[in-house]
Structure formats: structure tokens, C-alpha cells
Design a binder for these strands. Structure first.
Length: 268
DNA sequence: AACCGCAACAACCGCACGCTG
DNA sequence: CCAGCGTGCGGTTGTTGCGGT
């Protein structure tokens, strides 16, 4: 309690004593696991909930397996790490009696150095393939959406073409060509991607397509290659460095675990 | 014996997620 | 819908023990 009368918790840190362990074990025996924040109050420990949980999970749990990691466990760790990466808790679930912390420490001391260079290359190659697949999937989806647009489109194709020509001739004065990309490709932040209430033909058209400037002397093939190259040069797929762009970009902005997990699955 | 480097392990920290009121 | 809380997870740091010089 501080001088102005407000409770001031001073949590103990550092190594656990035998007495603290005993109190924690007794608490779990009486109340079960969970509600870790009430441990301090109910068990008389000067430790915060997080610290208590960690101590229990990593050290005091009765079902923990003591002793060195066996060669068999080691091979499982290697296999699962290759499959899931640093998802230690997931790996730990496949090794009864071992904790994520234990596996994580084991990996760091035994494999990190050895595999650093190998892993870098392997990871880069894996990410390259991942991005390639993502890009292809996205292109495919866009093409499908585009095809659907045309299927439902009531517009006269000739009118569309004449409008396109009009637009391209007026916009290409800066030297670049203009073509119309599906609206979603250029307006990724909208949910529907369409002009909801188009009136004129032009409005309908502009609602669905947006002009994209293509630099002079750039063929479609070169443009595509450039995009690929930009993707391949990204190092990490973690939501900070990598971004799968286009209409799906918002999904990749927040690196949600489930999202990343789904990305990895096809490679398992 | 003293020092150093390294491995192994324990514990902390920050962040994200899910639940609940 | 939102804030608060509890919990889980992964990264990082601190501590200890041991072998080599």
C-alpha cells in the first residue's frame, strides 16, 4: 500500500523457491488450473498470474517428462518444425510431456546455428513457391470474377469497345497505353468493388473498370514478369514484409495466425 | 585457480486472441 | 459494438553449470 492509499502490487521476479512451488502446487490441487490472476490472492504468492501459469505449465505440471530429448523426439521436432515453422505450441502437442518452451530452447541450442544457412535458402524457396501460388490463385479468382461480370453484362459489346477506344485515345496522350482493369484490381478497399447505381453506359463501365496506365514499350508479358520479380524478392511472409496485394490485400495486412496457417497448409 | 565461451534451461515481456459483461 | 480481463504464444533475456585454456 503506497502513502496515498492505493494498493501497490510488487510482484516477485526471478527464480522460484521451493516454498513458492509448494504453494502453487497446493493451489492447483485445490482450485485446478486457470484463473491464474487469483493465485496471488488465494495462495499467498507474490507472483503475477502469468508467472504462475508459466511455472506450472513449464515446470510443475505432473505429466511433464523429465530428462533429455530422445533421438526419436528430436526427429519429430525436426519434421514438425519443417512443416510448421516456429509454432512451438503446435509442435509440443505432438510430444506428450514436453512443453513449447522446452522445444523452443532445444531447437535454439541444437539446430538454429546448424540450419541457419540451409534454412535461409529453404525458407526463401518455400516463400517463393508460396507467393507464386498465391499470385496464381488470385489471378484465377480475378479472371473468374471478370468472366462472371461479362456473363451478366447486358451491355452491347460494340458500345463498350467504342467507349474504350474513346477513352484510350484521349488518355494516351502522355505516351502510355490505357487499358481497363476490373474495378476490384484498382479499388481494393471497397467491399463490393462496383458502382452500385450506374446510370449511363459510361457510368456502368466506369463502375466496373478503372483506367490503368501502361508505360510505353511495356508489353503485358514484361509487366507480368516485373510483378513476379517483385514478389520473388520479398523475403518474409509475415504480414510485415509480404503483402499479397490486389483485392485480397486487406486480408494480408493483419498477420492473423489462422490466415498464415491457411497459407502454409498447401505445402504440408 | 582464474577466466572465458558456450550450452542448457528458466523466466520475462509484449502482443494477439477469445470471452464476457 | 466495445472495453476489460484472462490466457496463450513466440521472441528474448537472464542465470547457471561445465569444459577448455
Amino acid at each position: 500500500m503506497s502513502w496515498w492509499g492505493i494498493a501497490e502490487e510488487v510482484w516477485r521476479k526471478g527464480p522460484w523457491t521451493g516454498e513458492e512451488d509448494r504453494l502453487l502446487i497446493e493451489y492447483v490441487r485445490l482450485h485446478g488450473e486457470g484463473r491464474w490472476n487469483s493465485v496471488a490472492r488465494l495462495a499467498g504468492l507474490k507472483r503475477n498470474g502469468k508467472s504462475c501459469r508459466l511455472r506450472w505449465v513449464n515446470y510443475l505440471r505432473p505429466d511433464l517428462k523429465r530428462g533429455q530429448i530422445t533421438p526419436h523426439e528430436e526427429s519429430i521436432i525436426l519434421e514438425l518444425h519443417a512443416k510448421w515453422g516456429n509454432r512451438w505450441s503446435t509442435i509440443a502437442r505432438s510430444l506428450p510431456g514436453r512443453t513449447d518452451n522446452e522445444i523452443k530452447n532445444y531447437w535454439r541450442t541444437h539446430f538454429k546455428k546448424k540450419t541457419k544457412s540451409v534454412t535461409n535458402n529453404a525458407e526463401k524457396e518455400k516463400n517463393r513457391l508460396l507467393k507464386k501460388q498465391q499470385f496464381k490463385q488470385q489471378r484465377q479468382m480475378e479472371l473468374q470474377q471478370e468472366q462472371q461480370l461479362f456473363q451478366f453484362d447486358q451491355l452491347d459489346m460494340k458500345k463498350i469497345m467504342s467507349l474504350l477506344e474513346e477513352n484510350s485515345s484521349s488518355s494516351s496522350s502522355d505516351g502510355g497505353d490505357v487499358f481497363y482493369a476490373p474495378y476490384q484490381m484498382t479499388h481494393s478497399s471497397t467491399t463490393s468493388g462496383y458502382n452500385n447505381n450506374p446510370n449511363s453506359l459510361e457510368e456502368q463501365l466506369q463502375g466496373r473498370f478503372a483506367p490503368v496506365n501502361i508505360p510505353e514499350s511495356t508489353t503485358m508479358m514484361n509487366e507480368e514478369n516485373a510483378i513476379w520479380n517483385r514478389f520473388w524478392n520479398l523475403d518474409v511472409v509475415d504480414g510485415h514484409g509480404g503483402n499479397f496485394g490486389g483485392a485480397g490485400a486487406t486480408a494480408a495486412c493483419g498477420p492473423r495466425k489462422t490466415y498464415l496457417h491457411n497459407l502454409v497448409i498447401p505445402f504440408c
